[in-house]
Amino acid sequence: MSATSLFEAKGLVKRFGGLLATDHVDITVEPGEIHALIGPNGAGKSTLVNLISGLLPLDEGSLSLDGVELAALAPHQRVRAGLSRCFQVTSVFKSDTVLDNLLLAAQAHAGSSFRFLSRRAAEDVLMETALRLAETVGLADVLGRIAGTLPHGAQRKLDVALALAARPRLLLLDEPMAGMGPEDSLQMVALIEQLRAQTAILLIEHDMDAVFQLADRISVLVYGRVLTSGDASHIKGHPEVQAVYLGTEAHA
């Protein structure tokens, strides 16, 4: 099975001057799997997400999704290849309505954007996609609201919906629970659980309850390296993990 992983990152390296932010990281994600990536602050989790999604150029290493080599592709081409992402800091179109946000996401994956003369508002297909996305993440009753005026939890859901429009094979979620209260977190956990049927997920998250609940496999990132990888019980019982991560978390 692991011979044909859906997603394979091999020997990823990223340096910022003298700092080795990503140190020969290997990560795989199997079809339908939720693979969680945890690690203390500064471990290089966000750098890794940016390397995979293409916002940062790789210094070394290879990335492949479904056999397609991604490393040479621009960020938007990686999305077309089936890799979509959310942002740690919510990244939506704040001054537009929820519906306009979703329409824009739908448009990205329904034909060319180089159409100049026909009104987009007349395209029912985009409207259908947008409504379906709203339904999926539970924003159907706030379609007319300006995105920037939504509560934080709802904006996070919108962020996920924008990424889902690509119908990704692999979804990168960069701390989807960041800054959320307990109730919003529960809803987000339920949403991610539900997404499992549609796409494999690489989940970066600080909320350990959520991670242990959702993840099929957990990798621990420390100082840019993968310390260990395994299921929840393996991670919980790993002495080094307790020392470097769970330990420091308790102090923080």
């Binding site: 621009a74 938007h76 179109f93 824009l104 954007s113 100049f116 009104r119 987009r120 508002a121 690509a166």
Partner: peptide, 28 residues
């Protein structure tokens, strides 16, 4: 007319949030 077309919407999306547009697959 272009302002309300697909192209116009994509262009305004880039104005408002270029990183997100690239992350949604637009050839920014």
């Amino acid at each position: 007319r272009v302002a309300v077309s697909r192209f116009g919407h994509a262009l305004m999306g880039i104005r408002d949030n270029e990183t997100r547009m690239a992350a949604m697959g637009y050839p920014v």
